[in-house]
Design a protein around this nucleic acid. Structure first.
Length: 503
RNA sequence: GGUGGUGUAGCCAAGUGGUCUAAGGCAAUGGAUUGCAAAUCCAUCAUUCGGCGGUUCGAAUCCGCCCACCACCUCCA
């Protein structure tokens, strides 16, 4: 399938440098991505990180590799800091209030939670919402439920691993039966984050309470199991009825579905410490292997209009917000949001702006129309193209250099703008490139956009008639109406055509 | 205080010792086209790479210092 696999190198957070990535010869590439917590809708920052993982996968698949990609759903509610209230419990309260309000106004939403006091229903509600968003934005994983494990369905496995860690001396039982991982039992603790144990002195960040370190042998020791019957989600076990620590789920699910060692582990930069540091300690403590993931890859955070995204600043956007026009004032094509979130380098902070979104819309439209044009010109002709095609090999070679998307787009656009004497061949080449970019994730040949009673073709006809009669004011009025509704008005040789703006 | 990362035109950004008086995209400007626009096509658009020193025949690229921004050290993609 591939004749010219590009050489690949990725930045490895573990070694703090670029390293060559070799495709395994006789098995799929294994990727584990830390997935969403499901007590709220996922926001665009979450999706920058998830789409970054999807990009790695699509790129590797374009080079001919087979990929097994797993992403967990964290449906266990963890404690919030101040109130000690569980996040799932908070979500329950919120949904209950919303339900009450909706009932009052009679606007009961579809797919709503029947019993907001049931944490499992809440988790499933937001999980479904997440998967819908993931599907809309073209995440390949979204179609593979077998690769999307839930934490709550893996508690048995967590208990099993905790027992392994207790047996091997990496874990110990403290006051009240609380099980901690002993970081001092794992000499390489701190290698990923650069935080060595003596630097992690208690309270260095001023944010760890005295209570929290009581009962620990070392302040950096972390929770594996807590017997606690007051928690909203709890499980019976020989370690006492309670709940697991939040790091253990990923160690267990990655091992169960991908094996003792994996090729790539991804997540947001905030997960480097402590989450991934702890995952390494747990997994290696249990497996005895010399590594957990060969490559650790982390996406930098997204900013919105130059500021950290936060609800209080009013610049906090979910995927639904953006696609529904909360940012731009009109519907945004999913390919545009995907492009915007993946066009800049994953290892640099990206600044999400209205202007950036509009730029992306122009770029995406250019690519979608390019494809449509080639399709029309090629007609029934088809061509076989492999990765040695100059545009494809240039594009993939750039991505092979630590996912250099800007470099890849720097290859793509001049080629798109050039001449295409063999449209069938160019189309085949573009389809390979677009299998990575995914400019039209929800490509629907039916093109069934709802126009909400608005009829663009009728207005186009009006324009044509007015122009034929040289009634310029009437033509301009119809054109203005189309533009106000979010359409771009073009003069095609065959007549006036209205094209919906993508953002 | 500790740790990790980033700083190139109006915006997004490639480039890690000479081919860089620095790719590509968007925006902008001029022209062709148009009833006027839009779309399209052509052209223009950083002697300069956060600042200051240093190494070198030669630096955006290497070294030192400084400045700014982001993240983590609590849950967070």
């Amino acid at each position: 399938m591939t004749t010219a696999a590009p050489s690949i190198q990725f930045y490895n957070s573990l070694s703090h440098g670029l390293e060559p990535f070799a495709l395994p010869a006789d098995r799929p590439v294994t990727i584990y991505s830390c997935g969403p917590t499901v007590y709220d809708y996922a926001h665009i920052g979450n999706f920058r990180s998830f789409l970054f993982a999807d990009l790695i996968r699509r790129f590797l698949e374009a080079t001919g590799a087979e990929v097994r990609h797993v992403m967990n759903i964290t449906d266990v509610g963890h404690m919030t800091e101040d109130t000690g209230e569980d996040k799932m419990a908070q979500a329950a309260k919120k949904l209950a209030e919303k339900k009450k309000a909706d009932k009052k106004s009679g606007t009961v939403e579809e797919g709503q939670v029947e019993d907001p006091s049931d944490p499992y229903q809440i988790a499933r509600f937001y999980e479904d919402a997440f998967l819908q968003d993931a599907l809309t934005l073209g995440m390949r994983l979204a179609n593979e439920p077998e690769n999307i494990p839930r934490a709550t369905e893996n508690v048995e496995g967590m208990l099993a691993m905790i027992h392994e860690l207790l047996a091997s001396g990496h874990a110990y039982k403290s006051e009240g039966g609380v099980i901690y991982y002993s970081v001092e039992s794992f000499p390489e603790y701190g290698k990923l984050s650069g935080n060595t144990l003596d630097q992690l002195v208690a309270g260095q960040g001023g944010r760890v309470s005295e209570d929290e370190i009581a009962g620990k042998r070392h302040p950096a020791d972390f929770l594996l199991w807590k017997p606690d019957t007051s928690h909203i989600m709890k499980w019976d076990s020989d370690l006492g009825t309670g709940y697991p620590g939040w790091h253990i789920e990923c160690s267990v699910m990655a091992r169960r579905l991908l094996g003792d060692t994996i090729d790539i582990h991804t997540g947001g930069e905030d997960l480097i410490f402590p989450h991934h540091e702890c995952e390494i300690a747990q997994t290696r403590g249990a497996t005895g292997e010399d590594r957990f993931a060969s490559f650790w890859m982390h996406a930098r955070f997204l900013m919105v209009e130059g500021a950290k995204m936060s609800k209080s600043k009013g610049n906090f956007y979910t995927v639904r917000d953006v696609l529904g026009g909360k940012v731009t004032g009109r519907d945004v094509h999913p390919g545009v949001l995907r492009y915007e979130l993946t066009k800049s380098h994953y290892r640099a902070n990206m600044n999400f702006t209205v202007k950036g979104l509009q730029d992306s819309a122009a770029a995406v439209r250019k690519l979608i129309e390019f494809k449509a044009r080639l399709k029309a010109e090629a007609g029934d002709a088809t061509a076989e193209v492999d990765n040695s095609h100059p545009a494809v090999s240039g594009f993939l070679a750039a991505l092979g250099d630590d996912l250099n998307m800007s470099g890849a787009l720097g290859v793509l656009f001049p080629w798109v703008g050039g001449s295409h004497p063999d449209p069938a061949e160019s189309l085949a080449a573009f389809e390979i490139i677009d299998s990575v970019l995914c400019t039209d994730p929800s490509a629907d040949p039916a093109d069934g956009e709802s126009t909400g009673g608005f009829d663009p073709t009728a207005l186009c006809k009006q324009i044509d008639e007015a122009r034929a009669a040289k009634d310029w004011p009437a033509a301009d009025a119809a054109r203005d109406e189309l533009k106000a509704a979010g359409y771009e008005v073009r003069n095609d040789p065959s007549g006036t055509v209205a094209v919906k703006e993508l953002a």
